[in-house]
Lab assay of single mutants.
Amino acid sequence: TLFEALYDYEARTEDDLSFHKGEKFQILNSSEGDWWEARSLTTGETGYIPSIYLAPV
């Protein structure tokens, strides 16, 4: 399942991933609670993103 960003997000740590509204992600690991490891389909970068900023596509 792909997810789309509902809002912009600016990374706060080196493990976080910055993204823009409308960016799409492949989720790599969603077992860490509210922060999911994801790969951006726009940039190819991976990192942790807040799941509350996402909606399934």
Rank of each mutant, 00 (worst) to 15 (best):
T1F: 13
L2Q: 06
L2F: 11
L2C: 08
F3G: 01
F3L: 03
F3H: 05
F3R: 03
E4R: 08
E4F: 15
A5C: 02
A5F: 01
L6G: 02
L6D: 01
L6P: 01
L6S: 04
L6R: 07
Y7T: 09
Y7P: 00
D8N: 09
D8C: 08
Y9V: 03
Y9K: 04
E10W: 10
E10K: 13
E10N: 11
E10D: 10
A11S: 12
R12K: 13
R12Y: 08
T13L: 10
T13N: 13
E14D: 13
D15P: 05
D15G: 15
D15M: 15
D15V: 14
D15C: 15
D15A: 14
D16K: 15
L17I: 11
S18N: 06
S18H: 06
S18A: 06
S18G: 08
F19C: 06
F19V: 06
F19N: 00
H20V: 13
H20S: 14
H20K: 15
H20Y: 13
K21R: 11
K21F: 05
K21A: 10
G22E: 02
G22Y: 06
G22W: 05
E23T: 07
K24E: 04
K24H: 09
K24N: 05
F25D: 00
F25E: 00
Q26G: 02
Q26E: 14
I27S: 01
I27A: 02
L28F: 07
L28Q: 04
L28P: 02
N29V: 07
N29A: 08
S30L: 09
S30R: 13
S31N: 11
E32A: 13
E32I: 12
G33F: 10
G33Q: 13
G33R: 12
G33L: 11
G33Y: 09
W35V: 09
W36I: 05
W36N: 01
W36L: 06
W36E: 01
E37I: 15
E37D: 04
E37Y: 15
A38F: 03
A38C: 10
R39E: 05
R39K: 12
S40G: 02
L41Y: 06
L41C: 10
T42K: 13
T42D: 10
T42S: 12
T43C: 03
G44E: 05
G44V: 01
E45C: 12
E45A: 13
T46H: 08
T46V: 14
G47E: 01
Y48A: 05
I49C: 04
I49Q: 00
P50M: 14
P50T: 04
S51Y: 10
S51I: 09
S51Q: 08
I52S: 15
I52E: 11
I52R: 14
I52Q: 13
I52W: 15
Y53Q: 03
L54D: 00
A55K: 13
A55V: 13
A55G: 09
A55C: 09
A55S: 10
P56K: 08
P56G: 05
P56F: 07
P56D: 05
V57L: 11
V57K: 04
